[in-house]
Design a protein around this nucleic acid. Structure first.
Lengths: 344, 344
DNA sequence: GGAATTTGTGCAAACGTTTGTATTTTTGTG
DNA sequence: CACAAAAATACAAACGTTTGCACAAATTCC
């Protein structure tokens, strides 16, 4: 004969801790503590509660729990666009870590719009999420509204596109080193007048890539020519236009800070009748799936998106405030593989 | 001098309706009704409450609201993979409608796994979402666990991949008609032995595509040859293998129920030295971005994913129980555009 | 064997909102 | 002006959980 006896397991509606308490002849507080693993209940009681909960089909009402605790077990992830290979892989990486740690993931996309971003932050704050992982939109150039919309008390982890001035953890690629390596690769393949498709100046990662590009040229004794550095050249269409101008300006290679602009460039160059990599070489950044499929396949820097997502999730879990660097990897494909003329 | 006078607007912590009530000398219930648009408050009172709320920086505590109302303003969307162009567009379409209607969207991906799917459904139910839009994973072949995990009381809208036997609204493509049209297109381009890459038999949409393919052949006086119908051929790798077998079996064209399997087929065929569309024609389903970029570009059926998402969201909002049909559109590209021999 | 400590439960007050019912105030009618 | 009806507001009880504090029982200590 046990001390705890279940008197009745029939309950109308959802089973609550109060029902369990009544059934066992204890109080709701004891049930709550037993189920949440508090050390303040006897092991025997915990067992009885757990069994009763199982038998009665209890499920914790997370809404009530959240209200009382003032926070939920949801982590928000804000990205510009979910279908970008890069972001979807980051999300996948973050999910794998967060789910294992008992969190659910709420995904929001901003479509690169500032106001959608603010709305997403507000929604997350109102739902009192446990934390936010975010990569800001291109449109937002000011960290202040972000900090305001998120409010205090919710940890923010920024990844890829970060505002240095916001507090909290950051996870970014080694943009400087990788751009350096990509440019050196072009030089090693004998290209001599290398243009650059740069991104937005408000976005640190693009500035770092630009700097890496400059450093590589300088280290090889080449001068940086600002006339063949094309700003804000990230999407397919601007890539097409810039490629044609680069051609007019005598370029024999392009290092693009984006993948879609590199795609546009290759399309435009092919239409002009140029052969890649013989006549002109192209290297892009961000390893979208199409970079491998297109013809010629595109040499790119792989961002290790999955690892970035994992790193961001871990930074949240451990409450880190540090900046993590994820290295990129150069995938050498057809678009830049000319016989090496200038061996290093 | 107004009737309502704000006595104090200084509050520690978050502002609640009780604070507003105190400030105005009314009760929380009146404030609640005023803010939620109940007709049972005087217009003058409503104005005063709204102004006070604004001035005091009030924000409704959605957790408390959800607990009391027993549901939230979140709609869950469950998809196999967010980075699939198709699903991300569906999500985009659903988002546009749901956000406008005051809902937030919680996205979950199952990675085609049954247990991840069940976990997602449980999480959503526990958070008492207002509804769920879902496209089930390939792995799940039984609707019963889905119904059980979601429980009762949460409306379910299925899209694309649906279980006919589950109650609730469904939004699907006109798979039969479109497969028919795609196959007729190949016939019209002079192809005479057309193989089919079919999907999983547990998934209705693939069965419908198969039936459309058969009907087209029959209508043109061609017999269906089961030896050139390749089951479970949906991913890139199986597409490669099936293409080689199809070739051995004398096929001069393939209608694939997937896009990635069509991609694999084209890769394999090109490696074999075949010319497309001259030697062999290929049509795929699902308009992924790479279908347009590859060489030769792939003729596909565009699923109008965005519209499907919008339709699913509307079905939820209006509480529909009907099945909506979204038509697919044949995008004719290089992979099947042989000079027409047999004009219709 | 009594005092001090530890251990396990109970009590009750939150968390902030919503809502059925009761009560007051206002309006309308003869 | 009295009285009924309607309109506006107040009251109070939820929703289900968590948690500080109090209290009893069991254990330890000298």
């Amino acid at each position: 004969m046990h001390k705890f006896q279940i008197y009745s397991i029939f309950v109308v509606g959802m089973v609550t801790i109060t029902d369990i308490a009544k059934a066992l002849g204890v109080t709701p507080s004891t049930v709550s503590r037993a189920l949440s693993g508090s050390p303040r209940v006897k092991e025997e009681t915990r067992k009885a509660v757990q069994q009763a909960a199982r038998e009665m089909g209890y499920e914790r009402n997370v809404l009530a729990s959240n209200l009382r605790r003032g926070r939920s077990d949801i982590v928000g992830i804000i990205v510009p666009r979910i279908y970008r290979e890069f972001f979807s892989k980051v999300i996948g990486g973050a999910e794998s870590i967060l789910n294992a740690a008992g969190y659910s993931v709420l995904i929001c996309q901003t479509h690169e719009k500032k106001d959608a971003e603010i709305r997403a932050l507000r929604t997350l704050r109102k739902n009192q999420v446990a934390g936010v992982l975010m990569s800001h939109s291109f449109e937002s150039d000011d960290p202040a509204p972000i900090a305001e919309a998120l409010g205090e008390g919710i940890p923010l982890v920024q990844f890829d596109r970060v505002f240095r001035s916001l507090p909290g953890a950051k996870v970014v690629n080694d943009n400087f080193e990788s751009a350096y390596a990509a440019t050196r690769h072009l030089i090693a393949n004998g290209y001599r007048r290398i243009g650059h498709f740069a991104g937005y100046e408000t976005c640190e990662l693009f500035v770092d890539r630009y700097r890496g590009y400059c450093k590589a040229l300088e280290d090889c004794g080449m001068a940086v020519d600002e006339s063949i550095v094309f700003k804000d050249t990230i999407v397919r269409e601007t890539g097409r236009e810039a490629a044609l101008r680069a051609l007019d300006l005598g370029c024999d290679a392009i290092y693009s800070a984006g993948a879609f602009s590199a795609l546009g460039a290759i399309e435009a160059l092919k239409e002009k009748g140029l052969r890649l990599p013989e006549d002109i070489g192209v290297v892009g950044t961000s390893n979208e799936i199409f970079t491998e499929m297109m013809s010629p396949s595109l040499t790119t820097l792989d961002q290790h998106a999955y690892e970035m997502g994992q790193a961001a999730a871990k930074a949240f879990l451990f409450g880190s405030q540090a900046t993590t660097l994820i290295s990129m990897e150069l995938h050498i494909r057809e678009s830049s593989s000319r016989k090496s003329i200038c061996q290093e």
